[in-house]
């Protein structure tokens, strides 16, 4: 392990917080998906760090699975963005409010 585990976890936490801020603050659907990407990346960093910490390869395999899940999520998410853009001619989340109770 080249650095203490705490420093790696701090870096991953900061990246996760940036992604979460992006999801919560931005109003653009594509920027929200980008925020989700940032969060998934930070989780991958934690998994690789854990893999190096315990010197087991399992964590890296979980990152590979995470990449596949991300690819699926992005494919569906961007298809939905295209669909919503066809419906409303806009990708601002503020106008998708028909389901408000």
């Amino acid at each position: 392990m080249i650095v203490p585990m705490e420093h790696l976890l701090t870096l991953a936490t900061l990246l996760f917080a940036l992604g979460l801020a992006c999801v919560l603050v931005r109003r653009n659907l594509i920027m929200i998906l980008i925020g989700v990407e940032i969060m998934i990346n930070s989780v991958g960093l934690v998994l690789v760090g854990a893999s190096a910490f315990w010197q087991q390869v399992d964590g890296q395999i979980m990152v590979l699975i995470l990449m596949a899940i991300t690819a699926a999520e992005v494919a569906i998410g961007l298809a939905l963005v295209v669909y919503l853009h066809q419906q409303k001619k806009s990708i601002d989340v503020g106008i998708f409010d028909e389901m408000r109770g």
């Binding site: 080249i2 960093l45 690789v48 190096a52």
Partner: peptide, 10 residues
């Protein structure tokens, strides 16, 4: 960073 942590394939 992944490479430095010992995951060249990833």
């Amino acid at each position: 960073i992944f490479y430095l942590l010992g995951a060249p394939l990833l």
